[in-house]
């Protein structure tokens, strides 16, 4: 009887250590397909591609995300220190949208592909930085305008303070 209980306990712990068999099967199939394509992906420059694959995840998770989270915390903290924590959104939204455009279109905005771009397409590579700055200015301008309007409305609605 004691021996049977030990066996059952042993089986349960093995089951827990393995996890769901269906999940294992699914993951095995997934790895088989990823392996089949991965061998071909790595065929030419395995080190370069592996570096890009893992590097993209590491750069995002350990550099990009901590950096923008820290910047956000600095903005929130700074506004909080001057008692204007509720203004965070008016900085965060235009900054996030502008940063997003810069992230996606960095090669064109920075001009690092200007020569190849102009030679291939017969289009001017000059406008991208100016247009991005313009969009950024419009985003921050609209945000500031919205803040001013809300503040004025709040001032009008607030009853006069009696001393």
């Amino acid at each position: 009887m004691g021996r049977l209980r030990t066996m059952t306990a042993h089986r349960t712990s093995v089951r827990i250590a393995l996890g769901s068999p269906l999940q294992l099967l699914l993951l095995a199939l997934s790895f088989a397909l990823a392996g089949y394509a991965g061998v071909r992906l790595l065929a030419d420059d395995w080190f370069g591609v592996a570096l890009w694959f893992v590097g993209a995840a590491v750069l995002h998770d350990l550099v990009l995300l901590p950096v923008y989270a820290a910047v956000d915390r600095v903005v929130t903290g700074g506004l909080g220190a001057v008692g204007r924590r509720e203004w965070t959104g008016y900085v965060r939204v235009p900054a996030a949208l502008s940063g997003l455009l810069l992230l996606v279109w960095f090669p064109l905005i920075s001009g690092r592909v200007a020569e190849r771009y102009e030679s291939a397409t017969a289009l001017s590579a000059d406008g991208f930085l100016a247009r991005w700055l313009l969009v950024t200015a419009v985003l921050f301008g609209c945000s500031a305008l919205l803040l001013v309007l809300r503040l004025r409305r709040a001032t009008k609605q607030r009853p006069p303070v009696a001393h």
Binding site: L29, A34, Y36, A37, G38, R40, F53
Partner: peptide, 12 residues
């Protein structure tokens, strides 16, 4: 090939 590696993981 990158799309297939990604899709294999995406599907799971």
């Amino acid at each position: 090939y990158g799309a297939w590696v990604f899709f294999a993981a995406f599907l799971a």
